[in-house]
Amino acid sequence: MRRLSAGAWRARGGSALGRGLLGIYLSALVLLPVSAVLAKSTTGGASAFWREISNPEAVAAIKLTLVVSAIVVVTNAVFGTLIAWVLVRDEFPGKRIVNALIDLPFALPTIVAGVVLLALYGKGSPMGINVAFTRASIALALLFVTLPFVVRSVQPVLHELDVSMEEAAASLGAGPATILRRIVLPSLTPAIISGVALSFARAVGEFGSLVLITGNLPFKTEVGSVYVFGQIESDNLPGAAAVSIVLLLAALAVLAALSVLSRWRSGHVV
């Protein structure tokens, strides 16, 4: 038997093995389920698919999901970057605790988040704010569950950002606002975009935190995922699958667009 050098092993077998594993793993976890949803959504043919997704209630739910998600990710982009800035550049007592708090929305079961938000900002709110069963409640819940994405993608980049770049700009006559606009933000843009993309994908599919606080009023506060759940409950699996596919495609389109944008903005930044 011939022995292979490390290089030959990598060239012949190693990378093929890696690719094979990746293929199996991704197929089992992502490709097969998505294909099944796709198959289910088209069981009645193209016209049935079209009928399901052009149902006014479905259209309203999809539209609402996308619009609120867009508002939420823009808010995230601004506040997530601000939070990351404060956590990296400022020193204050309790900074580590605040830093740990950021991940809480990841750890909390989203249905619990929904219950907590309902108790705090619902009827009889101790804060005197009642947004339950309104569209604002959707934004609130989505902001909560997507909070960590932008913060966590911007933080390490900001941490690694060379302060001497800002000093160089200052020595060339730039004031703080110019430095922020022309030096810092462009360096953070790819990280912000990637956080935004993850937030968007998450917001489009979010269910648990929304199902209690929004009240699921058709044409008013019913989002895509909740509509899908309703269709499953009433045994309309093809309808549920069709709307899921639309949400999936919307998320995919946004991810692709943002990735193109990010590469275009930073193709030269290594």
């Binding site: 060379d162 001497s164 770049m165 000093e167 160089a168 700009a169 200052a170 020595s171 060339l172 006559g173 730039a174 004031g175 030096i183 462009p186 360096s187 903005r265 930073s266 030269h268 930044v269 290594v270």
Partner: peptide, 20 residues
């Protein structure tokens, strides 16, 4: 006087290029 108003050119050890 702040750095931006001193009229001083500064070359940094690792050049601090504006990468973007």
């Amino acid at each position: 006087v702040p750095a931006r108003s001193r009229g001083v050119g500064f070359v940094f050890q690792h050049y601090a290029p504006f990468k973007h």
